[in-house]
């Protein structure tokens, strides 16, 4: 069996601040095969975006990867120097950010921003790079690319800008795309279109996709596998059907019950009591225990990762019965 596209193993990324060490990513492991989509689900501050940045080597001081392995096609990225990492970024691994209003540089034309991405990795002429840009813009559904290339970002709608950002990510035919909530800031209809198109693009080209989101309903229709993150740790992972139909971790259940559903109109929505804990004050204990209805005294010990069934992981001593 050949190496999977991406294998993250025991990744720890900490911020060393004046107030103390913030364990933004704390022992995170998962794997992703070519052409598959992984949903990375969690609320603000759960470490899902930071996991994405770690894979791209975009962690800034005072943050640092302190342990773990990130293997892309079997090659460990954590040992790379900055120049080698730069060669990967935007080339083998691309990223799409949350707010399309902010990711494109407002004072540079679209062609400048696209051509530079091609030429950072390939020794081609501007004309050749432009050809590639037109082709990719066409693929993400942007009509009359020539005209669009000469425009500035502010002349585009939010949905169009996100398509451009996706096009930029696709320029160098990456093996892996990390999408950090790219549809959250968009209208629902456009969100649907983009989800559908991204799914197709990945299936066709065999590109792996990590979709970071707080929204379980997005993951439901899109991903093959799901990792649920809480306070820097993966609390539960498995195939999307398994997780949505048979959640084991009390947090995952809480998340699912707080999603409004059409079938249960009129029923009061459940919410998870309490607040997200501060990452500064976290010990080794299960971070969710203060909000958990199932919590027992032994939850103060570090919960080890267990394998409740094939292809699933769980970090809970007292899981909900399936």
């Amino acid at each position: 069996m050949s190496a999977p596209l991406l294998e993250v193993d025991g990744l720890r990324m900490h911020f060393f601040t004046k107030a103390g060490v913030v364990k933004a990513v704390d022992d995170v492991s998962f794997r992703l095969e070519r052409g598959k989509i992984l949903g990375l689900v969690g609320e603000s501050g759960s470490g899902k975006s930071m996991t994405g940045y770690s894979i791209l080597g975009l962690v800034d001081a005072p943050g640092r990867i302190v342990a773990g392995r990130i293997a892309l096609n079997g090659r460990d990225l954590t040992r790379l120097d900055e120049a080698a990492w730069r060669g990967l970024r935007g080339n083998r691994v691309a990223m799409i950010f949350q707010d399309p209003m902010m990711t494109l540089n407002p004072v540079l034309r679209i062609d400048t921003q696209m051509v530079e991405a091609v030429r950072a990795h390939h020794d081609v002429s501007r004309e050749q790079a432009l050809d590639r840009c037109r082709e990719v813009l066409g693929r993400v559904g942007i009509a009359s690319p020539d005209e669009r290339l000469r425009a500035y970002p502010h002349q585009f709608s939010g949905g169009m800008r996100q398509r451009v950002a996706i096009a930029i990510a696709l320029l160098n035919k990456p093996d892996l795309i990390i999408a950090d909530e790219p549809t959250t800031a968009l209208d629902v209809t456009i969100q649907g279109q983009i989800l559908f198109e991204m799914q197709n693009l990945c299936r066709e080209s065999g590109t792996g996709l990590i979709w970071i989101t707080h929204d379980l309903s997005v993951v439901a229709g899109l991903a093959d596998d799901v990792c649920v993150m809480y306070a820097g740790r993966v609390v539960e992972s498995g195939s999307v059907d398994e997780i949505l139909d048979r959640p084991l971790h009390p947090y995952t259940r809480g998340l699912l019950e707080s999603v409004p559903s059409r079938n249960e109109r009129g029923r009061p929505l459940r919410q998870i009591a309490g607040m997200t804990p501060s990452l500064l004050r976290l010990g080794e204990a299960c971070a969710f225990r203060d909000r958990c209805s199932q919590a027992q005294p032994d939850c103060a010990a570090a919960p080890a990762s267990s394998v409740p069934s094939a292809g699933r992981t769980l970090r809970c001593l007292h899981p909900a019965s399936p």
């Binding site: 949350q98 929505l269 009591a273 607040m275």
Partner: peptide
Amino acid sequence: MSDIAPPAAAQPA
């Protein structure tokens, strides 16, 4: 980060 937090996650007072 400015994720829209799930229902329970209010800001610490």
